[in-house]
């Protein structure tokens, strides 16, 4: 198991957001996390690379326990790409510079190596002609594709997606989903928090329904979407489908 989470709890002050989550992801698996707003799914995803520190429980990524105080968190994060709802590109850097920064600073690539890798990835996400553009001049869909390429430039073992299409205009959603589908097809291990039920059904190996800080139900897309076992899952799917 490349991701193994055991009895994860997370509180903000008195408010418990995650109430004991057990979760595993196998190498190469694509897991989609669905659920209503406020169910804790984004917080949970952010615990997988310690952008949120956990209150109790254990998170083990590729054999490294993130909850162990001695873990070199930057080294583990280098293996986990993350894509944010708000893209979070570096606005003062050109597109290619966005892709080059971490490979140079963390992986020790030379500028030329990093640029070559960046160009290859921009080609992959269909933005080869935008390498000298600043993020502010790109559409939301283009920015998110750059953000995916930026994460891939670290050649991570796992990719986390935190509602990657939620802040996009509807007509820009597909171009981002297409890039994610390619990635899934190539065998990338992915955990995707999403409201795109079509994507979850088509691309997910497994779908996890979260509500009230708990994993309520897990199964193949077929099981979850056509034959949900839990009442809360049914209610949620009735509303969104």
């Amino acid at each position: 198991m490349i991701i193994q989470v055991t009895d994860l709890h997370k509180s903000f002050g008195d408010h418990e957001v995650l109430s004991g989550i057990d979760f595993t992801v196998a190498d190469g698996e694509v897991v989609c996390i669905i659920g209503p707003s406020g169910s804790g799914k984004s917080t949970f995803l952010r615990c997988l690379n310690m952008l949120e520190d956990v209150s109790s429980g254990e998170v083990v990524i590729d054999g490294h326990s993130l909850t162990d105080k001695k873990v070199k968190i930057d080294q583990v994060r280098a293996e986990i790409g993350m894509v944010f709802q708000q893209f979070n590109l570096f606005p003062h850097k050109t597109v290619i510079e966005n892709l080059m920064l971490a490979p140079i600073k963390v992986r020790g690539l030379s500028k030329d190596e990093a640029r070559e890798r960046g160009r290859r990835l921009l080609g992959k996400v269909g933005l080869a002609d935008k390498e000298q553009a600043y993020p502010g001049s790109l559409s939301g869909g283009q920015q998110q594709r750059v953000a995916i390429a930026r994460a891939l430039a670290m050649e991570p073992k796992i990719m986390l997606f935190d509602e990657p299409t939620s802040s996009l205009d509807p007509e820009l959603v597909d171009e981002v989903l297409a890039v994610m589908k390619d990635l899934a097809r190539e065998g990338m291990t992915m955990v995707v928090v999403t409201h795109e039920m079509g994507f979850a059904r088509e691309v997910g190996d497994r779908v996890t329904f979260m509500d009230g800080g708990l994993l309520v139900e897990e199964g193949t897309p077929q099981e979850i979407f056509t034959n949900p076992q839990h009442r809360r899952t049914r209610e949620f799917l009735d509303k969104v489908l």
């Binding site: 590109l89 570096f90 971490a102 600073k105």
Partner: peptide, 9 residues
Amino acid sequence: EAGRSLGLN
């Protein structure tokens, strides 16, 4: 968060 998630210290 974007910087740290890339492994930058």
